[in-house]
Simulated scan of single mutants.
Amino acid sequence: MFESIEHALSSYVPQLIGQQRHFSVLIPIILIDQEPHLLYEVRSQNISQPGDTSFPGGAVEKGETFRQAAVRETMEELNLSRQSIKVLGELDYIATEQVLIRSFVAYLPHVAIEDIDVNEEVDQLFTIPLRYILQHEPVYHSLDLSIRHPQDFPFDQIPNGKQYPWRKAQHLIPFYELKDHFLWGYTASFTSQLSLFLKENQLF
């Protein structure tokens, strides 16, 4: 029996426990006056988190990979051809009980921001010089998360019942201080990770 379990585990791909929705984002880099900039979207009022800053991306559809989803969503949101997107590789990802978000860094050769014709999901575009991101760290603010139990929660099935010492949850949220735009949360996290990766590998 144990040999059979070992054999089955040898080809098993571990998954994060939970029912996460899968998302993928592209971190686009464009050149402006020969200087690399990160390209951001401001989400339109027609979709979730209106007015927020994000990278192009969205839900992974059945039958496609995370990378394919990131490219497809970018093509749709920015009305770009596949040839306009050169994926450089995958960066870090975010995983919670609710979502799994993977990120891919890409260069958009021969793309000028003023020529991009966004779709209805995007209100506007803006860029931040990559040099600025490398020189400025995000500021982290904490958010205390409270625990609420429904009336039918089975306290009788856990030690000490209602006096069980639940761990207090605290969520650290990164914020970049920008003059005219918002940059916080997951998008700020991906931005910070790219900056950290470039610094650690002395690539800029």
Rank of each mutant, 00 (worst) to 15 (best):
V60D: 08
E61N: 13
K62N: 10
K62F: 06
K62Q: 15
K62V: 14
E64S: 09
E64P: 10
E64F: 05
E64M: 15
T65P: 07
T65R: 01
F66A: 12
F66H: 13
F66D: 12
R67Y: 00
A69Y: 09
A69W: 09
A69H: 06
A70V: 06
A70L: 12
V71T: 14
R72V: 05
R72A: 07
R72L: 07
E73I: 00
E73S: 11
E73T: 02
E73D: 10
M75H: 09
M75R: 15
M75P: 01
M75F: 06
E76F: 03
E77Q: 14
E77I: 05
E77T: 06
L78N: 05
L78H: 04
N79V: 02
N79F: 02
N79A: 06
L80I: 05
L80Q: 06
L80P: 04
L80K: 04
L80G: 11
S81Q: 11
S81M: 07
R82Q: 10
R82I: 00
Q83H: 11
Q83N: 13
Q83D: 14
S84V: 00
I85Q: 03
I85Y: 03
I85A: 10
K86C: 09
V87I: 13
V87P: 09
V87A: 06
V87S: 09
L88Q: 09
L88G: 01
G89A: 08
E90N: 09
L91C: 07
L91K: 03
L91Q: 10
L91D: 08
D92G: 08
Y93F: 13
Y93H: 14
